[in-house]
């Protein structure tokens, strides 16, 4: 099992010294969410210690409870909620700087109530759910169909198609491939996305 996982890891992340790539450290960028007060800071290069509310972290402490109403940690991203009346244009750079400091010492993060570390299956399910509720699901809806998460276990995600997507082989292939590609960016260990 481990051998297969290691093999997949090597295959999915071609490791070569291509000129241009800097050595991995933690890098991040913010994305908009449906809530204008919430920004999703996607994190690469560092595994986040738990999923759930953040109570304290170096750097972010100065903003938590003041400019930032809340900070939530998810697999691969940190969600920051701005306090009412704050603009991201002004607050953003400060949050970026604070987050940079925090990501430098992830071991010192303190989880808030209800936060815990997810295991491999739970992480896989979370990310698959995130994508299905988000961009991948939206594409299905745009085509008059829907995609439903059935199960996520041991690197395999099972989904079910509905509506216009159901029964159309092209749709099935495209949706599963799309989901798999995007999922792999967040969970490199994913092995396959199959139809249930």
């Amino acid at each position: 099992m481990r051998a297969i996982r290691d093999h997949l890891r090597r295959v999915s992340r071609p490791a070569d010294a291509r000129p241009g790539r800097r050595p991995p450290g933690a890098v991040t960028h913010p994305e908009r969410t449906d809530d204008p007060a919430v920004l999703r800071w996607v994190v690469h290069g560092t595994e986040l210690p738990f999923t759930g509310p953040l109570a304290s972290a170096p750097g972010l402490d100065g903003l938590l409870g003041g400019d930032l109403e809340a900070v939530t940690v998810t697999p691969g991203a940190v969600l920051t909620t701005a306090a009412p009346g704050r603009s991201w244009r002004e607050l953003g750079p400060r949050v970026r700087a604070a987050l940079g400091t925090a990501l430098g010492s992830v071991a010192d993060w303190l989880p808030g109530p209800g936060a815990r570390r997810l295991d491999a299956d739970e992480t896989l399910r979370w990310c698959a759910r995130e994508l299905i509720d988000g961009p991948v699901g939206r594409i299905a809806t745009a085509h008059g169909g829907a995609i439903e998460l059935v199960d996520a276990h041991d690197g395999v995600v099972r989904v079910r198609m509905h509506g216009a997507c159901r029964g159309c082989p092209a749709a099935v292939v495209t949706m599963t491939q799309r989901l798999e590609a995007q999922l792999r960016r967040r969970v490199p260990d994913v092995r396959a996305v199959e139809q249930a």
Binding site: A17, P19, G20, R22, P23
Partner: peptide, 27 residues
Amino acid sequence: LGFCEGREIAYVRRAFWAGPIVFRVCD
């Protein structure tokens, strides 16, 4: 131009008679 701190850079070639040098950086 791509010559940022932290980026990998490779020497490619140099023009005849001490001319300009070509580097590969940022693809």
